[in-house]
Design a protein around this nucleic acid. Structure first.
Lengths: 155, 155
DNA sequence: AATAATTAGTTTGACTATCGAAATAATCCA
DNA sequence: TGGATTATTTCGATAGTCAAACTAATTATT
């Protein structure tokens, strides 16, 4: 159905292949880049935890756990590690002393910004050599993907 | 530099955010989809091993290990598991009896095709509601990313 | 041909990440 | 107050990973 608006079959296949290539490789490239950086003592998963905590939001441990898809218990040990290594801080909330609010240390903020930079570079390179109208198209495509994935989540 | 051809700052930020969103979520969505499928006994990493083996190529164990970035020893145990579960087969090569050639069983081929289908859906949705000229732009963008990542690999 | 070096894969032992269940602690509410 | 609820932690078990040592097969060297 809807053949008319479709790209030629061969072109679709190569697009698909490159897309798979990107998804399969970003992670371990990021992981490898991290290993060679000044922050070789954390893994990409740790990095995502740091990213989830983010700069100014003061999220709770379980909120962060939900974002990175870890159980609370696994989150506890992940936090322990990152506290030991000096990337994050635990602060008991004053409003509700059951909850642990998480914050980045100076070191944590440095690595957070580096990670943001990595993704910014990625986005910039996606748009490499493009006219403004073309950029809008790319933005639409990525938005399509976000919407599709959001739909997949709710079956 | 080169401010003229750039998309407005706010637009870039939201594109970047959505891109991060995609990268952070595809994996675990894929993982979750797998868990709810008929193939809940394998992980996404197993799936990538199966994908690396692929339909007709008869790759060796160490070739597959390199593709999925596992050490040979880790590959051995990964293969053991997938053989036990009936997804793949070990065949000692006749030309060189040191090498183990890997192949998919019937069950392995079924799950392989399902995984291909997932990625095909992704690519189709990326191109959702687009004119042929727009599709070309998207293809260029993805190609940009592949090239950039390839460059990052060789520092 | 005999021996050395190399290569492919496996086994083993240690370490880490993860989960689920039970424990702890603080809060809420009837 | 006392019972239910919530947030986090602790504990025990399991699974994935790596590095080093090992086996077997092949190739190179003399």
């Amino acid at each position: 159905m809807k053949k008319m608006n479709e790209i030629a079959p061969l072109d679709f296949e190569s697009l698909n292949d490159e897309l798979v290539d990107v998804f399969n490789n970003v992670m371990w490239i990021e992981e490898a880049a991290l290993k060679k950086s000044d922050f070789s003592d954390i893994t990409l998963k740790d990095m995502h935890t740091i990213d989830a905590i983010s700069m100014y939001s003061e999220k709770s441990a379980s909120q962060v756990a939900r974002i990175v898809h870890l159980t609370p218990s696994a989150m506890t040990t992940a936090i322990d590690k990152l506290v030991d290594k000096g990337y994050i801080e635990r602060r008991r909330s004053n409003q509700d002393r059951r909850v642990v609010r998480l914050g980045l240390t100076h070191k944590g903020r440095v690595v957070y910004r580096a990670h943001q930079g990595f993704h910014r570079d990625l986005a910039h390179n996606l748009l490499n050599n493009m006219e403004p109208e073309e950029m809008v198209v790319v933005k639409k495509a990525i938005h399509n993907l976000v919407c599709y994935l959001a739909n997949v989540i709710k079956h």
